[in-house]
């Protein structure tokens, strides 16, 4: 037998072994309006999309026999947990979930590695994971709560949201996010906002040492206060100075002003200790 044949046979054996170890499970649960779905998955991805019926569909790919999927339904609540067996590690204990839920369901996801994705829902979404990449898009009328240590967080097209994001060092990117409350708190992560700050919302982006960028159209209506205690602030958009501020405005360290229509103004606070703040004008197409 030639060495080439041996290599091919070995590769085939390895692939076959992997396929044998990997298994797929599917679970279905009938639920009522505003159901609650909770998924805890130490290792692996979780993707949640809307279903077209009142059925929760869980499709799980288990990486090995060292992990099981525990599932429970209690009334209108479905709980899924990846259950690590003895000797499981980040590879053998990995489970990847594709989940369909009614669009009005409340979803709670935990994964330390992620990634986690939720899209096209209008129930509450809570996502927590230390290093997990978090991606939320096309949500409306939803409460969105995200917590990560260093996992990056991206929210895209969240309308009328009540958004609270906490990340110690993960980058937080908000694109087209608006609502009554949009709050990001970070210790050292960079925060980026691209949008128009909606109407009459409360926007608060704070980081200890991370930079904060906000890119907005000139048509934005907002009262903006930006302050970096030890860093710099830059403002590309002319603001009408505020008559009163609760802190002294130091040139280059802070600015406060109003733009657009006062009646529709949102309140925007950008605050960092040692990072930079940059309020940029979005280039109109």
């Amino acid at each position: 037998m030639s060495s080439r044949t041996i290599k091919v046979v070995t590769i085939i054996a390895l692939v076959a072994g992997t396929l044998v170890a990997e298994s797929r499970k599917e679970y279905r649960f009938n639920v009522g309006p505003k159901a609650g779905i909770s998924v805890t998955n130490p290792y692996g991805s979780i993707s949640v999309k809307p279903s077209t019926s009142n059925t929760v569909v869980i499709r799980a790919v288990l990486n090995s026999g060292k992990v099981e999927v525990d599932n429970t339904q209690i009334g209108n609540r479905v709980m899924i947990q990846s259950h690590l067996l003895a000797g499981a590690d980040a590879t053998s204990g990995r489970v990847d979930y594709d989940i369909l839920v009614p669009a009005d369901a409340s979803v709670t996801l935990h994964s330390s590695t992620g990634p986690m994705v939720a899209e096209k829902l209008h129930g509450d979404v809570t996502m927590e994971g230390a290093a997990a990449t978090v991606n939320v898009r096309d949500l409306s009328d939803a409460h969105v709560h995200v917590k990560t240590l260093n996992g990056p967080v991206t929210l895209n097209n969240v309308q009328d949201g009540h958004v609270e994001i906490d990340s110690l060092s993960g980058e937080v990117i908000l694109i087209g996010v608006n609502g009554p409350l949009v709050q990001v708190v970070s210790t050292s992560g960079h925060i980026s906002y691209t949008g128009d700050f909606g109407n009459s919302g409360d926007y608060r982006l704070t980081s200890h040492s991370g930079d904060i960028d906000a890119t907005i159209p000139e048509s934005t209506s907002a009262d903006v206060v930006a302050r970096s205690v030890k860093g710099e602030v830059h403002d590309d958009i002319p603001l009408q100075p505020m008559a009163h501020t609760w802190f002294p405005i130091k040139e280059g360290r802070a600015f406060a002003g109003t733009m657009g229509h006062a009646a529709m103004s949102s309140t925007v606070v950008l605050r960092t200790f040692s990072g930079k703040i940059h309020l940029k004008k979005r280039q109109e197409k």
């Binding site: 330390s112 110690l168 970070s186 210790t187 609760w246 802190f247």
Partner: peptide, 30 residues
């Protein structure tokens, strides 16, 4: 001491630390 935002930042700083402790115990951590 009269800076409301500064006090709020202090609260947030503590919350970040509390979150770190919380996350360390979180069930998503294997």
């Amino acid at each position: 001491p009269n800076d409301e935002e500064a006090r709020r930042s202090l609260m947030e700083a503590y919350q970040q630390k509390a979150m770190l402790f919380d996350m360390a115990m979180d069930r998503s951590l294997p």
